[in-house]
Nucleic acid binder design. Structure first.
Length: 422
RNA sequence: GCGGGGGUCGCCUAGCCUGGUAGGGCGUGGGAUUGCUAAUCCCAUGUUCGAAAGAACUCGUGGGUUCGAAUCCCACUCCCCGCGCCA
């Protein structure tokens, strides 16, 4: 959530909305805000009168006076107040709803643009393996090597589900172990979070409007399936005051991710690239505000390094203002070269959410007791979304014999297996 | 799932039965005083609005009763103990 005080001088908000190329009922929000402020003042005044009168009644009672006049007046005031409070409640609900739909501000280094095609190339890394034959895509490869079963998954769960089979199950686990070791070596605190969290926690981490689009709800329970461990790692310190000396706090979590993919009809319908359920090792950093841009760059470098180790060629893109997620103030994507599709495809998203999540979740820090608290900054990045990464491995490490080599970095996690064959 | 106990201003705790401005201790910050690694005393120490004066809010969360709720009632939630179920 954004700071409500920004509404007092909305030029920043207007600029952000233009840059993000978004329609937003800002005027309506501004009106709600001024009505809300007026009403707050009125309610305060009435409460003050009530408090004074309550004291008066109390003192009169002590000297055996019955205070009938005051009690009568108090009744009137109380009625008046409950009417105003009903109005205030209604107004607050509307206000909060709109306020929570306002996306994050943008950092100045975010380039302006409308779509994916306006994203800015930052750098590429890793060398593309030369394949002197017609490369297959991951669907062909995984099917012919008996590494997946889509039909039976569709039968029991629907489209965008899959069974991993045989060596692909092991490759998935190997990637997870490699990723966890990789982060552990860099002193990240490893986590395995709850896979379901409450609405209160989810709301602070996700945009209200995105809820219905991506998040699965558990029927009859106040629980939602996490779309990523980011949701659990952002909310885990909800309502806490962190010690400044402990920052930055770096977490690395492994969890499955559950996504409705409601807005993705027709996109990537086959294979394991875009699915309802996948595993991901995710980085999450709580940072001091003044350090968050530096931490963002560090996290990006860690991620790029991981794909260097794996031998997967990637390019790093800085997302333009129109392509940026709503909670993020700045995002880099890593795209992997996919020979079978002859294209770069997104495998990593690395974002600085500045104080947006922290404000909604009430996560602050201070260096000394009694010092004024400040909101932390939160950052998140994929290290590896294993299903997408396996798409990249299958397509980049395929051989002209129709088999797939195992990347050297994964050998020790694959019982020294070096090749996947039928 | 059942029964019992609990959640109070950073930490600890009083207040709850019997409704009337949330008190104390520790820690922290500031000040005063004293000739000694320190002691003693005073003030401050949650959030919001406000330039300030001031005001409102805050006793796990949300409702209710009441002129008035930390206190009484209801629901939810988390922690502890016991029972049940269970990989």
């Amino acid at each position: 959530m954004l700071d409500v005080n920004l509404l007092k001088n909305p030029s920043l908000l207007k600029g952000m909305l233009v840059r993000r190329n978004l329609q937003f009922p800002l005027e309506e929000l501004l009106q709600l805000d001024s009505r809300r402020r007026d009403l707050n003042i009125k309610v305060d005044e009435i409460r003050h009168r009530k408090n004074v009168l309550a004291n008066l009644i109390s003192t009169k009672r002590k000297v055996d006076s019955d205070a009938l006049e005051e009690i009568k007046l108090m009744n009137e005031i109380s009625n008046n107040l409950s009417n105003l409070q009903a109005e205030k409640y209604e107004l607050d609900v509307k206000f909060k709803r709109l306020m929570m739909m306002l996306p994050n501000l943008l950092l100045v280094s975010v380039p302006s643009g409308n779509t994916e095609s306006d994203n800015v190339f930052v750098r590429s890394s890793g060398t593309t393996r030369t394949l002197n034959f017609q490369p297959k895509d991951h669907i062909d490869l995984s099917t012919s090597l008996d590494l997946v079963d889509f039909e039976r998954a569709a039968k029991i769960a629907g489209s965008r589900f899959y069974f991993l089979k045989n060596d692909l199950v092991l490759l998935n686990q190997a990637l997870i172990r490699m990723a966890l070791d990789f982060l552990s070596d860099k002193s990240y605190i490893l986590l395995q979070p709850p896979y379901m969290i409450r609405k209160e926690a989810m709301e602070g981490a996700v945009m209200l409007g995105d809820f219905e689009q991506v998040i699965y709800k558990i029927e009859e329970e106040d629980l939602f399936m996490i779309g990523t461990s980011e949701h659990a790692m952002a909310s885990m310190h909800m309502n806490e005051i962190l010690e400044g000396s402990k920052l930055p706090i770096k977490y690395g979590a492994i969890s499955p991710c559950f996504r409705k993919e409601a807005g993705a009809h027709g996109k990537d319908m086959k294979g394991i690239f875009r699915v309802h359920q996948f595993e991901k090792v995710e980085q999450f950093v709580y940072s001091r505000p003044e350090e968050s841009e530096k931490q963002h760059d560090i996290m990006l470098a860690v991620t790029e390094d991981f794909y260097e180790h794996l031998g997967i060629p990637t390019r790093t893109m800085l997302l333009c203002s129109g392509d940026l997620g709503k909670t993020s103030a700045k995002t880099f994507d890593l795209e992997a070269w996919m020979p079978g599709q002859n294209a770069y495809r997104e495998i990593v998203s690395c974002s600085n959410c500045i104080d947006y999540q922290a404000r909604g979740l009430h996560i602050r820090f201070r260096d000394k007791p009694n010092e004024e608290t400040r909101l932390v900054h939160t950052l998140n990045s994929t290290l590896v979304a294993t299903e997408r990464c396996m798409v990249a491995i299958l397509e980049n490490y395929q051989t002209n014999r129709g088999t797939v080599e195992v990347p050297g970095a994964l050998w020790k996690y694959m019982n020294d297996r070096k090749e996947i064959e039928l």
